[in-house]
Simulated assay, not measured.
Amino acid sequence: MTGARERLTGSALSLYLAALLLLAGPAFADGSATSAQAQQRAKAVTQVVLGILSYARWPVEPVPLRLCLVGPTEYADDLIKSNVQNAGQPMQVHRLLADDRQVAHACDAVYIGKLDPGQRDRLFQDISGHPVLSISEADDPCTTGTLFCLRVGDQQVAFEVNLDSVARSGVRIHPSVLQLSRRRAVQP
């Protein structure tokens, strides 16, 4: 009797596992669609970031431009692979820890991922007074030190501009980029 019960339990377990695999199949397929969407978003973010950088002017033009990724990022994978800007100028991309005190001297631009408020405050204290362009990936209100705040959606990547931070940064931004941010912000 024990052998029959073990066969029945084994058969039930096999059926249960088969049902789980059948149900998980669409989830795996959906996961690959989600992966493809994330990859598409990363490419779109890269194009927007490279576009912003190409319309920025530093007091002394950096060659190569040093872009630093700070904090955990969701869409920066393609930026890491970049070694030239849209205009063909050389660019170096590397990651720094959020508490690295050399950010202001090692970076011409920072791409900011998710940081806690204390880390953000320290970062902006460190770059304050230095010509460092900052772009935030995290969904923040674009009020605390960041020059550009990305808004990543399914259909497009938009951005907001903090004009006060731009004025204080020492980096000049072409007026057409500022106009573009206003137009994109109006679109749904």
Rank of each mutant, 00 (worst) to 15 (best):
T2N: 12
A4F: 09
E6A: 12
R7M: 07
R7D: 12
G10L: 10
G10K: 05
L13E: 10
S14R: 15
L21Q: 08
L22E: 05
D30M: 11
G31R: 10
S32R: 13
Q37K: 08
R41S: 12
K43P: 00
V49I: 09
L50W: 03
G51W: 05
G51N: 15
G51C: 01
L53E: 00
S54F: 00
V63A: 06
P64L: 03
P64V: 04
R66G: 04
L67Q: 01
Y75C: 01
Y75N: 14
A76L: 04
D77S: 14
D77Q: 13
D78F: 07
I80Q: 13
I80P: 00
N83S: 15
A87D: 14
G88E: 01
H94M: 12
H94D: 05
R95Y: 04
L96R: 06
L96A: 02
L97K: 14
Q102G: 11
H105F: 11
A106R: 15
A106W: 01
V110S: 06
I112P: 03
K114S: 13
L115K: 04
P117W: 02
R120G: 04
D121T: 15
Q125K: 10
D126S: 13
H130P: 00
H130D: 08
V132S: 03
S136W: 05
E137F: 08
A138H: 08
A138G: 11
P141L: 08
C142M: 11
T143E: 11
G145R: 02
G145I: 04
L147D: 09
F148K: 05
D154G: 09
Q155E: 12
Q155V: 07
Q156F: 06
L163E: 13
S165P: 01
S169H: 02
V171A: 02
S176W: 03
S176Q: 15
L178Y: 07
L178C: 09
L180K: 09
R184T: 09
V186D: 11
P188S: 09
P188E: 13
